[in-house]
Design a protein around this nucleic acid. Structure first.
Lengths: 143, 143
DNA sequence: GTATGTGCAAACTTTTTGCACTTCG
DNA sequence: CGAAGTGCAAAAAGTTTGCACATAC
C-alpha cells in the first residue's frame, strides 16, 4: 500500500484513494480492461466513476506507470509490468500471460543489428505469441 | 476483378458487388479500418451500408480471406495479406507496413523448438516492431 | 489557497443486431 | 425458388468530454 503511494508521488501524481485503487487493481488483475478495473474496485468497497477510471489510466500511461495492450479479440487492456516483455495470447480464451525472455531479446537485437531494415529505425520489438495453454492454466477468468 | 470473384467463390461465398468492393478496398488500402473501407467504396461510386461492411468483414475473417490487426492506437484494422508476416508500426503516425522475413521466421522457429515453453503450445508468432519510418515514407495517409 | 482530481451525465465513436426486402446461384 | 446477403435504423459497447464540486499538497 505504501509502495503504491510512493509509485504515484515519485511520478509527481497526487495520491488519491481512486488512483491507489486503480493501481492496485492493475497489479492484482491479469491485463484488465477499464471495465474489469471499475468492477474490481466497486466489488472491494468504494465506488468510482467510469470517467475517472479512464482519466486516471490515461494519466498513468502518460507518466509511464502502465502500458496499453491490444488483442484482436476485444477492447483495450492495461499492463502494469514495465520491464520489457512479450505476451502469450490464448487462442481459446481472453487469457494473456506475460513472457519475459532476455535470451530471446538478445537474439532479436543481434539479428536486427546485422540485418538493417530499409528506412526504418526500430525502437521496440514485442512478440505476440498465439497458442493454447495446456493443463489447468486455461480458462482462467478475471474476477 | 475476375480474380476477386474467384477468391470469393473459392471460399464458398456468394459473389455480390458489395463483397467485391470490400475486397478490392482491402487490397488497395493500407490496413484499413472498417470506416476507411466504407468511405473508399462510397467515394468510388456505389453506396454501401456500414452494417454490411462489418458483416462482410466478419464473414471474410471466418473464411480466412483476411485477418484483423490491432494497434494500441485505435480501432480494428484489416489485413488482406495472407502469407505469414509481421508489422512495422510507426510511433509517429498510424502507418503500418507489412514485413515479410522468412529468415527471421526460421530463427524463431528454431529458437522455440529448443526452448520449449511450459504448458503452452505455440501456434503463431507475430512481431510488432515499433519505430520511425525514415525519409519520405512517413505520414502517408490512407485515402 | 490553488492547482489538480473526481463524479456525473451527456455525447461521441465504433460495432452489433433485427428484420423486411433483395439478390445470387 | 430457397438460401444467403443487404439496407436501414435502432441499440449496444466502449470511451471521451465538460463542468461543478471536492481534495491533495
Amino acid at each position: 500500500m505504501i509502495d503504491l503511494k510512493d509509485k504515484l508521488s515519485q511520478k509527481g501524481l497526487k495520491v488519491t484513494p481512486q488512483r491507489i485503487s486503480i493501481l492496485e487493481a492493475i497489479y492484482s488483475l491479469n491485463h484488465p480492461t477499464a471495465d474489469d478495473i471499475t468492477r474490481h474496485i466497486r466489488q472491494q468497497h468504494s465506488n468510482i466513476a467510469t470517467g475517472t477510471v479512464y482519466k486516471v489510466l490515461e494519466k498513468f500511461i502518460e507518466k509511464g506507470l502502465i502500458k496499453k495492450i491490444t488483442t484482436d479479440k476485444d477492447v483495450i487492456r492495461y499492463d502494469g509490468l514495465l520491464t520489457h516483455h512479450h505476451h502469450l495470447h490464448s487462442t481459446e480464451s481472453v487469457l494473456i500471460k506475460d513472457y519475459i525472455d532476455e535470451e530471446l531479446d538478445k537474439l532479436l537485437t543481434d539479428y536486427f543489428n546485422k540485418k538493417r531494415l530499409n528506412d526504418f529505425k526500430i525502437e521496440e520489438i514485442s512478440l505476440q505469441i498465439k497458442g493454447k495453454f495446456l493443463n489447468n492454466q486455461m480458462g482462467v477468468e478475471y474476477e
